[in-house]
Design a binder for these strands. Structure first.
Lengths: 217, 217
DNA sequence: GCCGAACCGTAACGTACGGTACGGCTTGCC
DNA sequence: GGCAAGCCGTACCGTACGTTACGGTTCGGC
């Protein structure tokens, strides 16, 4: 989703067949959550359990490979930061907010985050780290250059890009992710997401917009 | 934690022995996460498995009772809303922010939320609903009267208390909870929490403070 | 056509754990 | 004292599932 870019490490020495198996595992993970069984994955993927173990080692290996496989699919197109004015900055921020809301409200993201959260307690694997790295931290890496460019163009005023990013993150996500993870029915329509993206962006600009200029509202 | 109030429904027809057993289960839940076993709980609580099943029905019943038992312990003292001025409103908001950050960064909260998130997928029980009801929604119920009082006193300006609350929630929590749930090391010291509470409150007032008066910063 | 590698389907194994049964001990009541 | 209730400790049962083993099939290379 969100502008798939066939990246270099997307293949990651995975054969097409292996990708298909991981897709099956992913679909099953969305449906069943963490209580999916190796037998179910094998049946869904029309492969043998022996093959699963040969390719992925054990259950945790399969889960990790599945999460990484999904992560490799959600590379978004970078936003170029040339010719930045308030309109384009606003559009970029709204775009980031909208994309992020779509991601965290998707069935796939919810399922993956649930599994990763569940595994985070017992240091058996690093699903939490993988999800975090490809979620919140990847978002920060992509957004910070935009924020820096906005500051350089005199449109934004902040001391620390990290702090500014975290505020933006909070304004966008609010209670959405934790409510969805905890099972709250919270249907985010296209319109709702769009409105929330605009609101969050306006609030962010109100807090961090440079005072030079008619920034009254 | 946070000003325990011996409430009416705290007992909830639980004997002292049962409370002790649930405390043991809670401690084990923090240590082991969702893979705690009934045998381990019985051993830790020095009771028999037969007793666990008699009292709580099955494993899910024990988990639910444990979560509810913890929830019954975190009733906070309500903030009175008389004689409200900007200083006391600011203090109240900072207090809410600080308390909430302490809650979501506590080992107990993290463990409970992890278990609830893990169970949210399969409609076996309603741990997610319980956690949500005693967490995010309880916070809203307590904070909204303060916001309404602030608006009535001419200190705040917002159309919808729910929307205002969610923005405050986002400004306070930001990425903290999801990072902690996913296993990110993120040590929140007393000082950090205090600073974040002040920052979030100032940002909230900048967004929703009434324009009448010297509200320039 | 033959061989080996890879893989499918399925059966089998071992174990961990939820749930149950039971003997023994304490406690309160007659 | 006798008795019943409640509970502890432990042994036990059944099952689900991770993991392994194996026979049968496909397929590329010679």
């Amino acid at each position: 989703m969100l502008h798939i870019v066939p990246d270099i490490d997307t293949s990651e020495t995975l054969t097409e067949r292996q990708k298909a198996v991981l897709d099956a595992a992913l679909r099953l993970l969305v449906e069943e959550g963490d209580q999916l069984t190796m037998t179910a994955v094998a049946r869904r993927a029309s492969c043998s359990k022996e093959t699963l173990y040969k390719w992925f080692g054990d259950r945790d290996g399969l889960l990790t490979a599945t999460v990484q496989w999904q992560a490799s699919k959600v590379r978004v197109a970078p936003v170029d930061a040339k010719g930045l004015d308030l309109a384009s900055l606003t559009a970029s921020l709204e775009r980031f907010a909208s994309d992020w809301l779509k991601v965290i409200s998707s069935d796939t993201s919810i399922a993956l985050n649930r599994v990763a959260v569940g595994h985070a307690g017992s240091g058996k694997d690093d699903l939490g780290a993988v999800v975090l790295e490809n979620g919140r931290f990847a978002l920060a890496r992509r957004l910070k250059p935009v924020l820096e460019a906005g500051r350089h163009a005199g449109l934004l005023d902040f001391a620390d890009a990290e702090t500014a990013f975290r505020t933006f993150f909070g304004l966008v996500a609010r209670d959405v992710q934790i409510r969805l993870l905890l099972g709250d029915r919270l249907e985010l329509t296209e319109a709702t997401i769009g409105g929330d993206a605009v609101r969050a962006t306006q609030q962010f600009l109100a807090l961090f917009g440079a005072k030079t200029g008619p920034q009254g509202l």
